[in-house]
């Protein structure tokens, strides 16, 4: 109960500060709030937009939930999302299923570079995952300007992917996949021994080791699950929404996943609600940019405020309880 109150309060503070920030630059805060509302849940079109935006957010959010639960700092969802999209593009000719499988494997492998570097060389995964994000961004840039550039060669983008996700009531089928991923993640974390070992590793590695858990192998596996989810997010985004790759393909979904996970207090089912909230924020911000000429980066500001509010409240409580 306390946790839901905390999340609601954090979300409220973010919206309030967002309106205040717009107000500080001479926009009317109430008009800004009205546009945010209108652009996110005000019409059936807006609701579909919100759901479509929240699909990759849910998957990258789950990616972060799994990693953080195991005590690994995977800040690399952005890069894993990109290599997932690249792999899905290459495998699209073999159909949707093969494409998603390739995306998940690519994301898992990309994340494993970081976990193996931590294991073998003690390199902190916080840094290696961030560096791998930049490498993935430039790898994508090279692909869409070079080997994967569209046949006409006009723009730095690929041709249309050779597979497309079916649609379901105006929203692509990825929505169902993302919901399944959330339920499977919950089941894995709370109903299997693998999940118990994973959480024990994150909760107290020394105790987990003492209890006979192979902590190193557990971390590598957790990182692979985590990367697979972000990779899958990239594949779904490609076949469901963009249908092509271009340089700004990931556009911050990876980093936003951290905000989703923290707002959900690292719970896979709560992540569904958190992803919908940030999806709404993002589609609302898009409408702000179109109709009020306010930079859509204001959505990033909102994500940051939520994160900071959650962090501040949880540490205050920890301090008071201690």
């Amino acid at each position: 109960m306390k946790q839901i109150a905390l999340a609601a309060l954090a979300a409220f503070i973010a919206i309030a500060l967002l309106a205040l920030a717009a107000g500080a630059f001479g926009h009317s805060p109430s008009a800004v709030l009205a546009i945010l509302f209108e652009g996110s849940v005000g019409s059936s079109f807006a609701v579909r937009e919100t759901i479509i935006k929240s699909i990759p957010l849910l998957l990258t959010g789950l990616c972060v939930v799994i990693a953080f639960r195991a005590g690994v700092w995977n800040i690399g969802a952005e890069g894993q999302f990109i290599v997932g999209g690249l792999a899905a593009m290459l495998a699209a000719r073999y159909g949707v299923a093969a494409s998603f499988l390739a995306a998940a494997i690519a994301g898992a492998l990309w994340a494993s570079i970081a976990s193996l570097m931590r294991l073998w060389r003690g390199a902190p995964e916080v840094l290696t995952t961030i560096l791998l994000n930049f490498i993935a961004i430039h790898l994508l840039g090279w692909c869409v300007n070079g080997p994967l550039r569209e046949a006409s060669g006009r723009y730095p983008q690929t041709d249309l992917a050779m597979a497309t996700l079916p649609r379901l009531g105006g929203v692509h089928f990825g929505s169902v996949l993302a919901l399944i991923a959330a339920i499977v993640s919950w089941w894995m974390l709370y109903r299997t021994t693998e999940g118990l070992r994973l959480r024990a590793t994150g909760f107290n590695p020394a105790a987990a080791k003492f209890a006979g858990i192979n902590v190193a192998a557990q971390i590598v596996r957790a990182m692979a699950y985590s990367g697979a989810l972000a990779g899958l997010a990239g594949g779904i985004e490609l076949l469901g929404v963009t249908h092509r790759l271009f340089e700004r393909f990931a556009s911050g979904y990876g980093y936003a996943g951290i905000a989703v996970a923290l707002l959900a207090q690292l719970h896979p089912i709560a992540a569904i609600a958190a992803a919908l909230f940030f999806g709404a924020l993002s589609s609302g911000a898009g409408e702000l940019q179109r109709s009020a000429n306010i930079s859509a980066t204001i959505a990033t500001f909102g994500q940051a405020v939520v994160l900071l509010a959650v962090v501040a409240f949880t540490s205050r409580w920890r301090k008071r309880d201690a």
Binding site: A21, W73, I75, V126, Y255, I258, A259, L262, I294, S295, T297, I298, A299, T300, F301, G302, Q303, A304, V305, L307, L308, V311, A312, T314, S315, R318, K319
Partner: peptide, 21 residues
């Protein structure tokens, strides 16, 4: 006494968002 890594990530998003806007 907040978590340093989450706080740092949040700070980066905050500055990126607010300066861009």
């Amino acid at each position: 006494g907040a978590d340093q890594i989450v706080t740092g990530t949040a700070i980066n998003l905050l500055v990126l968002g607010i300066t861009g806007f």
